[in-house]
Design a protein around this nucleic acid. Structure first.
Lengths: 170, 170
DNA sequence: ATTGCTTAGGTTATAACATAACACTGTTTG
DNA sequence: CAAACAGTGTTATGTTATAACCTAAGCAAT
């Protein structure tokens, strides 16, 4: 166990951080990666990426849709789901299965599975960097002769803020 | 890592096992536990439990519903969802979030989180006993001052059978 | 047995999440 | 330019889950 550590530096739960910086950085990284991969970060796709980066709270497809509609984008469900599919493929976003929601990926450079702490009170998600865990799970699967392709690790409970101040809406 | 092992004896993927025995045992354990806990294993609830034990493949709520309908049970969605909720509360079933489906719990005596290997080809689910993993995750959460309440661990890929014979329907 | 409480189930409607299918447009490339 | 393809628009529908309100069944105390 001592081989593992949760080394995410910018905790979503800790002291509040400059979130605009989060978004800006995510966006410029996204642009760079898309250029590299000859993928087109079109207006809708970029806007959806911005929206899921507005906070560290995973956003449902229909919430995104609503916002797009307000902004005059076309907005039928396929629009959003297509954009999300693109972002997932490019590794720019993660899907949070247990919430049917989507969140920006903190480390899109590295291809990886997303591991999350999810606060049930304030709804925020913190992505964890747990490389050793991924390898452990690979080994567990291998021991069963199972070819592991994807991992869903979602840990839910109460974040530090919400243990004392329930339902905070940071 | 050597502290962990996947010790489930009756692999869902290994040599085929006597599945009737699975069901029978699950059912009698369920009856015993419900009696202990003064919970009522009513006909619908029991039947739903039997259905999700029919195979090691997680079953969707509407698949269950369909089967109940065929058998003359009342069957509107709430019927099934209530029964499933009961079974989950009693620890007799697990929900597989990534499949929106439900499966019988192999070890209802012990209160625990379900950890699963899910084959994307044949749809079967194997529950893993990974006590050490649960503790690790607790520690990871604790390091972030996060109060962990629930864990979703779903590992998907190809089971041993389906690596050679895709789409088997055991 | 009668009352009253509590749990379970019936019923209708609808909310929430996701995709199929097909048409149209714009971009790229030979 | 034409062909091929990627992206988007649009309509409709499929799939999963719950709200709300009502009825019935079990059960405990008198």
């Amino acid at each position: 166990m001592s081989t593992m550590s949760a080394s995410d530096l910018s905790s979503a739960f800790g002291a509040s951080h400059d979130h605009h910086q989060c978004i800006d950085q995510a966006l410029s990284t996204a642009k760079r990666l898309c250029k590299q991969h000859r993928a087109r970060l079109t207006p809708v796709r970029q806007r959806v990426l911005e929206l899921i980066w507005q906070s560290h709270k995973p956003l449902g497809a229909y919430q995104i849709l609503e916002q797009l509609a307000r902004e005059g984008f076309n907005s039928a469900p396929p629009t959003v789901y297509r954009a999300l599919e693109f972002l997932l493929e490019q590794g720019l976003a993660h899907r949070i299965t247990s919430l049917n929601a989507f969140v920006g990926c903190c480390h899109p450079e590295r291809h990886h599975q997303g591991y999350f702490l999810l606060c049930r009170a304030c709804g925020s998600a913190q992505e964890l960097q747990l490389d050793a865990l991924g390898q452990q799970l690979q080994q567990i699967a291998a021991a069963q002769h199972f070819r592991l392709e994807a991992q869903i690790i979602e840990l839910s409970g109460l974040c530090p803020n919400c243990q004392t101040a329930p339902e905070a809406s940071a």
